[in-house]
């Protein structure tokens, strides 16, 4: 089932990427080629196979509930493209 340009546009919106018309066309073609290659997986019967999300058999790794000092505010904001009144400044939301 080939991926359409409309789907590429929808995925780009979900991923917050602005694509030029050229990129849209290229990604549609490339994603189709890659996904066609992925179809190889359908040759495998995986009905009763557990998925592997973690390769390690680890569980219950915790930290204790102890508060520690974090970053001083100037260091927290040091990398911000824009800051004001000790806060991160962004274009208006809603």
């Amino acid at each position: 089932m080939p991926i359409t340009t409309a789907e590429v546009e929808h995925v780009a919106l979900l991923a917050r990427l602005k694509l030029s018309p050229g990129e849209k066309a290229a990604y549609t073609e490339q994603l189709n080629a890659i996904l066609e290659y992925m179809d190889k997986l359908n040759a495998l019967d995986t009905r009763d196979v557990e998925p592997t999300a973690h390769v390690l058999p680890l569980h219950n790794v915790f930290r204790d509930d102890v508060a520690r000092p974090g970053l001083p505010r100037d260091r927290a904001l040091a990398g911000a493209p824009e800051a004001s009144e000790g806060q991160f400044k962004v274009p208006r939301v809603v």
Binding site: G70, L71, G86
Partner: peptide, 25 residues
């Protein structure tokens, strides 16, 4: 006492961005 995934305090109030660390940022 501390946040869910890092050691920052959960205290209410506080000057903005003073209860933060690389993890919760």
């Amino acid at each position: 006492n501390s946040k869910a995934f890092c050691g920052c305090t959960t205290a209410f109030g506080g000057e903005p961005n003073t209860h933060v660390c690389p993890v919760c940022l």
